[in-house]
Design a protein around this nucleic acid. Structure first.
Length: 262
DNA sequence: GAGTATGTTATATG
DNA sequence: GCATATAACATACT
């Protein structure tokens, strides 16, 4: 589920239910998922009020004043809320008992992480994350991509370059721009990189507008076809599947052959 | 059983 | 240091 738009939805969800609420008791239900900080650090947040909720890339931060609770949803994580404190979900890993209601982190595959950090900025610096994909400037985007020799898909997936895009949305923006996923970033002309920057913003905005439901995306989006193994929404050619940067990559061999080294 | 999966990190190799 | 590939993590689903 979680790339940038899904995490942004989770942020809004938490804001709507828990902003201003006091964390009465925190329960770590799976220590294997502990990321930064110690369990004691997390318990120090008890008694504090949730002041703000922030996001950087795919990372979510609940700011309790005395530091932030960091959450990464991994491949299968989701945030749930229940009014009833006796309610349990099938794969809950972290439980935040509030003065009204309970926030749960549910994650079947346990690829997610949670922990404590002094602030979002500290966490981002410590991990060396690139700028957030939704707020990066055109200039910075071009600067960060233009000298990379790796396949452009691998560069866009690298959270140290740009934080927030995952496998599905990278395929989408490359499709929108007609760029072959294997093209080295360094051979993409500057004006095309500028267009790509715009495509990143447009695709993320469209996904948020669709509330991350692919079927609600505009016609002409690759994400609507991905499951069906179907046809290019632009030219009708059969979509291809290949591996780039170790990930399954769906693309249209007809629309995305510009400078393709394959 | 095999193959696949929206993520990240460690490790090995050139 | 960079680029690339691979495995590992843990679980669910087809």
């Amino acid at each position: 589920m979680p790339e940038l738009p899904e995490v942004e939805m989770a942020k809004r969800f938490v804001e709507g239910r828990a902003l201003g609420r006091t964390l009465v008791r925190l329960e770590v239900l799976d220590r294997r998922m502990l990321g930064g900080g110690t369990e004691d650090d997390m318990h120090d947040l008890e008694g504090q009020r949730l002041q703000t909720v922030e996001r950087h890339g795919k990372n979510l931060f609940l700011n309790f004043g005395k530091g932030v609770l960091h959450v990464h949803l991994g491949m299968s994580g989701s945030v749930l809320f229940c009014k009833d404190r006796y309610h349990h979900s099938s794969h809950e890993r972290l439980r935040l008992n509030l003065d009204r209601g309970v926030l749960l982190l549910d994650d079947p595959r346990r690829f997610g992480r949670f922990g404590w950090a002094p602030s979002m900025a500290d966490f981002v610096a410590m991990k060396g994350l690139g700028p957030d994909a939704l707020t990066i400037t055109e200039r910075e985007f071009v600067e960060r991509l233009t000298r990379k020799k790796s396949a452009i898909k691998a560069v866009l997936l690298d959270q140290h370059v740009l934080a927030g895009l995952g496998n599905l949305y990278v395929d989408e923006v490359l499709f929108q721009m007609g760029i072959c996923p294997r093209t080295p970033a360094s051979v993409v002309p500057q004006e095309v990189l500028e267009g790509l920057w715009r495509a990143v913003g447009d695709v993320l905005d469209a996904s948020l507008k669709a509330e991350t439901d692919f079927q609600n995306l505009p016609r002409g989006y690759l994400l609507r076809q991905r499951e069906k193994g179907g046809m290019c929404p632009r030219c009708g050619h059969a979509l291809s599947s290949t591996m780039v940067g170790g990930r399954t990559t769906i693309f249209c061999p007809n629309c995305q052959k510009e400078r393709c080294p394959v």
